[in-house]
Amino acid sequence: MITVSACLIVKNEEEVLARCLDCVQRVADEIIIVDTGSTDRTKEIASRYTDLIYDFKWVDDFSAARNFSFSKASMEYLYVADADEIIEEEQIHNFLRLKETLFPEIEIVQMYYCNQLEFNTTYNFDKEYRPKLYKRVREFRFYDPLHEAVRLEPVIYDSEIEIVHKPLSNHAPRDFTTYQKIIARGENLSDKLRSMYARELFIAGEDSDFIDAYSYFYETVLHTTLGLTELKQCQCVLARGARLQQKDQDFFKVCLKNVACSVTSSEICFELGEYYLQNGDELEAILWYYNAAFETEAELNLHYQGDYPLNKLALCYQALGNDEEALKYVNLRDEWKAEER
């Protein structure tokens, strides 16, 4: 049977930590708690479950805190847990069975991360795989009987274990503040992090968040060589930011470049619909909302090719006095939402 260190980084988690650790203590052989500056009862609660509690000065870097937590672990495998997660009873049994049967060559175990859409997280799917269990010490071995080479890619196992994400609030404001601090320090966002920033804006961003992000994405498009997907993601953010700031020339410039792509982004069509609706042109808005819903593909948030434009189509037809068409799109919107649940 393998042994497991559960590694958590926490800050002011008194409302959810006991709920999490009640589950974690049943699957882990040791629990590592790294506190990044709690001012509530977080460490007191943690002390009921473990004496391996460490302070870590927060430096706006989750990776640094995660790495520190890993450095304190001593078991064979490292389980990455967050305080707002729970493991339900059946999944605890599945986890324990995994500990008994895991082949030693497995270096990463993926588990289903569930309930992601309830609080507008940065993912478009309510249930998808995430790496959650890592072998602490990796063994390097040669493979192939001829022209031998060291295997560099980790051996990954996709388990059936489900971890439920159950936060009490949305983390987006914290994330947007962190993005801005990284940018202010002059540090580059990786392609992955920039994509996550754009995605989170379209899933949970307020108007002010788009305005704050505008300069960064503008400079990125201007001075960075981007692939088509990355470019289109940036265009979506820039279109929203330009529209909100009434920069009409920049707005249409970025929208036209996106429309010229082989596959137009639903978010861009939605933004064009918003522009015309705000200017009192419901008929032109209908054209673009229709394209968002039926003729394009979402780049960052699936709702922009679904219930969002369908709802706007209903509102436009209602404003034009066409209640029959309005009802049709209300029904389509409700059907789409039902299918997504």
Rank of each mutant, 00 (worst) to 15 (best):
F140I: 09
I211S: 09
I211W: 12
E160D: 15
F202L: 07
Y197R: 03
T178R: 13
T177H: 15
H223S: 12
D191R: 07
L231H: 04
I203Q: 05
D144C: 10
M196L: 14
L146M: 14
K181F: 12
R194V: 12
Q245S: 13
N170Y: 04
F125H: 12
S195E: 09
G241W: 15
G241V: 03
Q245R: 06
Y218K: 10
R141Y: 11
D209W: 00
R243M: 06
L152W: 00
I183A: 01
H147K: 08
T229H: 07
R174N: 15
L228Y: 09
N124F: 08
I161W: 00
D175Y: 09
D209M: 04
R243E: 09
D191T: 01
E219R: 06
K132F: 12
L231Q: 07
S208A: 05
D191Q: 03
Y134S: 09
G186W: 02
V221F: 14
K247S: 06
R174H: 14
I203K: 08
L193H: 12
P131M: 03
F217G: 03
K181S: 12
Y218P: 12
N188L: 10
P154L: 05
D191A: 03
R199F: 12
R243H: 05
L228S: 13
Y179F: 13
E230F: 06
E139I: 05
H165Y: 09
L238N: 08
F125I: 15
F125W: 14
Y218T: 07
H171R: 04
A198D: 11
F125A: 14
R240E: 13
S159A: 11
E219M: 00
V155L: 08
Q233C: 01
R243Y: 14
D209V: 05
A213S: 03
D207K: 14
N124A: 05
D158H: 15
D207S: 01
R141C: 03
E153Q: 10
F217S: 08
L193Y: 10
S169D: 05
S169G: 12
Y129T: 13
E200N: 15
S208T: 03
I161Q: 05
D209C: 07
Q235D: 11
D212I: 07
I156D: 02
F217V: 00
V137P: 14
K192W: 11
P154K: 10
E200R: 10
D158M: 13
L222D: 12
K127A: 09
S159M: 00
G186D: 00
C236T: 05
E230G: 12
S215I: 08
I182M: 06
E160T: 11
E128C: 14
